[in-house]
């Protein structure tokens, strides 16, 4: 039986991929436009998160976004991306570690300076 949520994500992902293939329709994002509504007006945290996500490789960022903000399980993500659950879990672990290092290294360096 097809998982409805995973199916919906697959639809949106395919639509986004098709859209990005049409290069002339790509519009660059505003460099300072927010991706998230931060908790407690933590705009610095939002900026750090955005930059850390931008720095991730595409495949790791996909898994991270689908798991954290899409609230998909690894099994659903593996169906969606056509990967094994182990690969998905591995990508997620790498992404989470990189994100944490990137965000807190930045915050700590800001705090020290």
């Amino acid at each position: 039986m097809v998982d409805k949520k995973a199916y919906l994500f697959a639809c949106v992902r395919n639509a986004a991929l098709n859209d990005s293939k049409l290069g002339d329709r790509n519009t660059p994002l505003e460099p300072d436009s927010a991706w998230f509504r931060p908790p407690d007006r933590d705009y610095t945290g939002e900026q750090n998160l955005r930059r850390a996500l931008e720095a991730l490789p595409n495949e790791q960022r996909q898994v991270m976004v689908l798991h954290i903000w899409g609230e998909l399980t690894f099994s659903q993500i593996s169906d969606l991306l056509g990967l094994s659950s182990n690969t998905v879990a591995s990508r997620y672990r790498y992404a989470l570690a990189k994100l944490r290092d990137s965000m807190f290294a930045k915050e700590n360096s800001c705090a020290n300076s």
């Binding site: 991706w35 998230f36 931060p38 908790p39 998160l49 994100l99």
Partner: peptide
């Protein structure tokens, strides 16, 4: 905890 922290950021 880091996951919970990240989830506090809601996508626009």
């Amino acid at each position: 905890h880091f996951e919970a922290y990240l989830k506090q950021f809601r996508p626009c």
